[in-house]
Amino acid sequence: MRVFPVYAPKLIVKHARIFLTGVIWVKDLGRLEFEKGRFLLPRKSLPKVKQAILELNELIEAQN
């Protein structure tokens, strides 16, 4: 598990694309899981977490 002390979308996306499957922890967002290079949306999450995951997945799609 990698810990990101700040929310840096480009760096987080780079990590997810390299490792494809895993878990990261982002300060103020908490634990985020990714599989096959995409972030998974938890069943229950705060609106800011949901927005961050959608933003990260959009960045991943834009890079493909």
Results as ranks from 00 to 15, higher is better:
17 R>W: 06
50 K>L: 06
2 R>V: 15
8 A>M: 13
22 G>I: 01
34 F>H: 04
29 L>I: 12
14 K>I: 11
64 N>A: 12
33 E>V: 13
10 K>N: 13
46 L>T: 13
3 V>E: 14
17 R>V: 13
62 A>S: 12
46 L>Y: 12
52 A>Y: 05
3 V>R: 05
11 L>V: 08
64 N>I: 12
21 T>A: 11
31 R>E: 15
44 K>S: 07
31 R>N: 05
1 M>H: 15
50 K>I: 07
13 V>M: 06
24 I>N: 00
39 F>C: 01
24 I>G: 00
51 Q>N: 14
60 I>G: 04
4 F>V: 02
9 P>M: 04
7 Y>G: 02
35 E>D: 13
42 P>C: 05
42 P>A: 07
18 I>Y: 14
11 L>C: 09
12 I>G: 00
48 K>P: 07
21 T>K: 13
48 K>V: 07
39 F>N: 00
22 G>H: 02
8 A>E: 10
1 M>F: 03
32 L>W: 01
24 I>M: 05
60 I>L: 13
62 A>I: 14
25 W>G: 03
56 L>K: 01
40 L>S: 07
16 A>N: 01
9 P>E: 04
44 K>D: 07
18 I>N: 11
15 H>V: 05
51 Q>M: 12
38 R>V: 13
44 K>M: 07
8 A>Y: 09
52 A>K: 09
25 W>I: 07
9 P>L: 03
54 L>G: 08
22 G>S: 03
13 V>H: 02
31 R>K: 15
55 E>I: 06
7 Y>I: 02
55 E>N: 06
36 K>L: 11
28 D>V: 05
22 G>M: 03
30 G>C: 02
1 M>P: 15
41 L>M: 13
31 R>G: 03
50 K>G: 06
55 E>Y: 13
60 I>R: 04
59 L>E: 06
59 L>W: 07
13 V>N: 02
12 I>D: 01
20 L>H: 10
2 R>E: 15
64 N>V: 12
13 V>L: 06
4 F>Q: 01
17 R>K: 13
3 V>H: 15
11 L>E: 14
31 R>D: 04
7 Y>V: 02
57 N>D: 03
24 I>R: 00
7 Y>M: 03
